[in-house]
Design a protein around this nucleic acid. Structure first.
Lengths: 196, 196
DNA sequence: ACCTGAACACCGTTCAAGT
DNA sequence: ACCTGAACACCGTTCAAGT
């Protein structure tokens, strides 16, 4: 299975030739099952995310965003280089699971009160954050586990859960503010919460 | 020059061997100048961003964030696959220019009123957004220029500037809200702007 | 339907040796 | 100081041919 190979050796060693060898096949054999490497990686990404795609519980939108993003991060962290792989597959538009998650986040954004034109973008912004944060976190974790990183390493490694939800709240607060702005004077959502 | 090669053929063709050939050198020669390919790419990334690193004008923090991010996006869009390249170099910690931009954004976040522990994360979140958005935008632009994409393509390609600043405002609003929260009852920044 | 064999056109990196 | 020659250990992809 490709996922085991990924988990054991990382994304750099997840090559078509190596996977074929592990499966007792010839490299060319994989091209009967997948169009190219991108398609294969997309399938692996969707496998990693398979656990995440649970039901959309009928909760307030902010709670739903929180639940979706926490679940996504957990799934990414559960496998070696998971964040990097899913990030790449999402960027290439090769993950159906990520498309589904994007839809669910778009729904939450719309329910928050963001107009249809921008709800999708708000949802994407949330995903950029989750993928960026988790890829960062994971690379540090793995670098760390591999021996380096002297001691406490101070910031950026302590309390990753707290840091993650802080950043997530930044987006959620922004969505609230934006929704409020477009409610007040509709047609002109161009007003920012004023700086102190 | 590596940047010209990148601009003409894209990141996939920016290989050590190809670059060496273009320079009239042997592949091994590049390893006298750079430790490895990552270092070379980091240098190219910093070249692309060289124009951006202008002075930090003494403006309100939100305006500074806006200026920094707009300048960054312009620089990324100015070269083929610029966003993807810089994104990778930033993730690998190989771009000094991105480190400098991160510092400037951290300063802005601190000035917004976000405590020192979280200002860096807020700055990172902004960068995740700018890099994610622009990489998306650029891949669509290039796919488009390469012939595909039937017609108007509806959402996600129309008014990219407006969409970009909308998403950016999400983050800026979130920073304002978070700063306000930590001002009200310090020690507990865990309160969200309530949903409608 | 599913796979092999064999080829095509490449990669990044190292390192003795040259000038 | 800067570069070549030559090798090492790989890549992704295609495609006739086999079963």
């Amino acid at each position: 299975m490709a996922v085991t190979l990924l988990d054991d050796y990382g994304i750099a060693d997840l090559t078509m030739r190596r996977l074929a060898r592990e499966l007792g096949l010839t490299p060319g054999a994989l091209y009967w099952h997948f169009a190219d490497k991108q398609a294969l990686l997309g399938a692996v990404a969707d496998r990693i995310l398979a656990t995440t795609t649970s039901a959309t519980a009928p909760a307030p939108w902010a709670d739903r965003v929180h639940a979706i993003c926490t679940g996504l991060r957990d799934a990414l962290l559960s496998t070696t280089d998971g964040a990097e792989l899913v990030s790449a597959s999402f960027a290439a538009g090769k993950s159906e699971q990520m498309a589904a998650i994007l839809d669910r986040l778009t729904g939450a954004a719309a329910e928050a009160g963001i107009d249809a034109t921008h709800a999708g973008l708000a949802a994407r912004s949330v995903l950029y954050y989750v993928l960026g944060f988790t890829a960062d976190e994971q690379s540090r974790l793995q670098w760390d586990a591999a021996g380096a990183l002297a001691d406490g390493q101070s910031v950026m490694t302590t309390d990753p859960n707290g840091r993650f939800i802080f950043g997530l709240r930044l987006l959620v607060d922004g969505m609230s503010a934006q929704a409020a702005a477009s409610r007040d004077h509709r047609g002109d959502p161009g007003v920012t919460v004023p700086a102190p």
